[in-house]
Design a protein around this nucleic acid. Structure first.
Lengths: 148, 148
DNA sequence: ACTATATTGTTCGATATCGAACTAAATGGA
DNA sequence: TCCATTTAGTTCGATATCGAACAATATAGT
């Protein structure tokens, strides 16, 4: 493995790390009630994929340790944005449902992000994003698989 | 802004966030001495760009708050991987120099990452990375500019 | 030169993150 | 059925992250 290649992959992950960083900071400026990105992302996921997910499914979806997801969900529950109910099919487990307040919060947040997204879209077109996504998905999937 | 586009950009940042997450976890498994990704990244930056940077320059480079960089540097200094010296040209400021121990640590870490990178390179070719980088750089630069 | 403003870095407190150890429930052999 | 192993989720403790407030120094405008 020539050093040049190592450098290339380092640069890739460096850029990705910084983008994640900037995205997080920008997004959290639009979230009220002290919500943070992981909490907002969970709300989105519950709507996009379907609610009724278990905490473990959510942790896997976001590739965070389950302890982190516990913490995230506790915050969402305290804010009244999700309901945590027992899972009849597996009594070790729970299921997470988004509440009306959660839906409203999400919608308001997205609305307030509108101008931001519009601005990004002016510089980075949807077409470009579509073209880039397969690469990112492949990279994600590979890292995911290699995780043992 | 149609909802479809919003969704697209959300997905983009979601993928990027997860990749950053996975990269961090994978990388930290190869770091000894309890070093974490930001500390390793700083060492890399000091070699790649040139050491003698100020903490503020480093914070900007990684787009983290300066308090976070203070913390990162304190860890590196305690480990003996960087020297923090006064900045003659600006007495508010400091300059960071990598030590021999820091260089050695970085080299060993990179060596131990070799197989990992090789494995990634098998799935994601350097060519693909090169093709993807301009998009990521553009996105990063835009977010950076939009940060006010 | 003088003063207002900006910049650098720190400390502090609140919160986020996560690994280890734990409990409870499910699963898979014998 | 019984017991070993696996899985879901929590608690706990250590550390990371970051905003606010601060002190020291630099810069800009007059």
């Amino acid at each position: 493995m020539p050093d040049q290649n190592t450098r290339l992959y380092f640069e890739l992950f460096n850029e990705i790390g910084i983008i994640a960083q900037l995205n997080r900071a920008a997004l959290e400026q639009h979230l009220t009630d002290g919500m943070v990105l992981p909490q907002f992302s969970v709300l989105n996921h519950l709507i996009r994929v379907q609610d009724g997910r278990t905490p473990q499914e959510l942790a896997s979806a976001f590739q965070v340790p389950k302890t982190s997801m516990t913490h995230t969900l506790q915050g969402l529950e305290k804010a009244g944005f999700v309901d945590v109910r027992a899972n009849e099919k597996d009594k070790r487990s729970k299921r997470i449902w988004i509440t009306d307040a959660g839906r409203t919060f999400r919608e308001k947040s997205i609305a307030s992000l509108g101008p931001e997204i519009k601005e990004i879209a002016a510089a980075i077109t949807p077409k470009q994003v579509e073209d880039a996504l397969p690469f990112l998905c492949a990279l994600r999937e590979h890292l995911d698989k290699a995780r043992d």
